[in-house]
């Protein structure tokens, strides 16, 4: 890369970090939004959410490896769709088979999702091995676009755009449809929804499916971002998604979106301006500060 005048280089670095941070925040949002909705409506802390991501990513990767006859772009899009479908179906089945029979027993529900998280990642390792598998995306995604002197990898735009589309779509769904209304009301007071003659449990499978799709999207996008799919990624991204959810306030989509952006940016800036690896630590620090500053507000929302 040709040497740029110093101030300009600083500016371009800042832009690159910001866009990359937003891309990362986009992925956190995709995972955290489902977690937050599921917790808000059902009181279930879903440890298997990382498994949804893994299943979606491997679904897409597997489809891609089978669709060898198709050219790169349609193959990628088809594979991504397969991944999304796999994520949705898997999540809906988890709700139906494992969560529903334990209705109202929240601790058991959490425990079951813990067992599932362990079993799914072990199963993926058993079938496809511990190593990361290359995930082929259209070459355009690997190229860069210049913005004010900064060379931004194109996949960042796709991540950000996808998250914005998902946010807008989810918002429209929650505001404009009857099921959306039921979910918003159920997050506030589930018992009262049933006391209006509504079988709120029918919405449970729906939020799981939505969470599954969003996590699968994050799985496919993380496949593009890293160029691979990998059995451990679900868990490591899930931990940051948990942090995003706690900072944002459970059950609030807007809070989750804001918090995802903040966490993504803080992580990127700290990694670059302080020291590599410090980004992750500063996110934990951020969480500590938020909890110290307003534990009542947070725990009130969480109760």
């Amino acid at each position: 890369m040709p040497a740029l005048p110093v101030p300009e280089r600083k500016m371009s670095t800042l832009i690159l970090l910001t866009i990359t941070g937003l891309g990362l925040g986009a992925m956190y949002f995709l995972i955290a939004s489902g977690l937050s909705l599921i917790y808000g409506l059902m009181g279930v802390l879903n440890f298997a959410h990382g498994a949804f991501l893994t299943v979606g990513a491997y679904g897409a990767w597997f489809a891609e490896s089978k669709l060898t006859a198709v050219s790169v772009l349609p193959r990628f899009l088809l594979a991504a769709l397969v991944g999304l479908a796999v994520g949705a179906v898997f999540a809906a089945l988890v709700e139906l088979v494992l969560i529903r029979p334990l209705y109202k027993r929240h601790i058991e529900q959490v425990l079951v999702t813990v067992g599932l998280a362990l079993a799914v990642s072990a199963l993926v390792v058993a079938i496809w091995g511990n190593d990361a598998r290359p995930f082929v995306a259209p070459s355009w995604l690997g190229e860069t676009t210049s913005v004010a002197g900064a060379h931004i990898p194109n996949d960042r735009w796709v991540e950000i755009a996808t998250a914005v589309v998902v946010l807008v779509a989810l918002n429209a769904f929650l505001r404009r449809t009857r099921y959306g209304l039921i979910i918003r009301a159920g997050v506030e007071n589930r018992a009262m929804v049933t006391a209006l003659g509504i079988d709120v449990r029918r919405a449970f499978m729906l939020v799981f499916a939505i969470g599954g799709v969003a996590a699968a999207i994050a799985g496919v996008l993380s496949g593009v971002y890293f160029g691979t799919v990998d059995p451990a990624r679900g868990t490591s991204l899930l931990i940051f998604a948990f942090i995003v959810v706690v900072i944002g306030g459970l059950g609030s989509l807007r809070g989750t979106a804001v918090s995802a952006v903040v966490v993504g940016l803080v992580q990127q800036y700290a990694n670059y301006y302080a020291s590599s690896g410090l980004g992750d630590l500063s996110v934990v620090l951020l969480l500590g500060i938020v909890l110290l500053a307003r534990p009542g507000g947070l725990s009130a929302k969480l109760a």
């Binding site: 209304l181 918003r184 009301a185 506030e188 007071n189 018992a191 009262m192 049933t194 006391a195 209006l196 003659g197 509504i198 079988d199 709120v200």
Partner: peptide, 26 residues
């Protein structure tokens, strides 16, 4: 509960329990 309501039992709870985040129309 939801079936009891569907059979024609309406309920106005103590403390009202309106959905605070939803509009009146909602």
């Amino acid at each position: 509960t939801y079936r009891i309501v569907q059979r024609g039992v309406g309920y106005v709870p103590e403390d009202r329990d309106v959905f605070a985040g939803l509009t009146v129309a909602e």
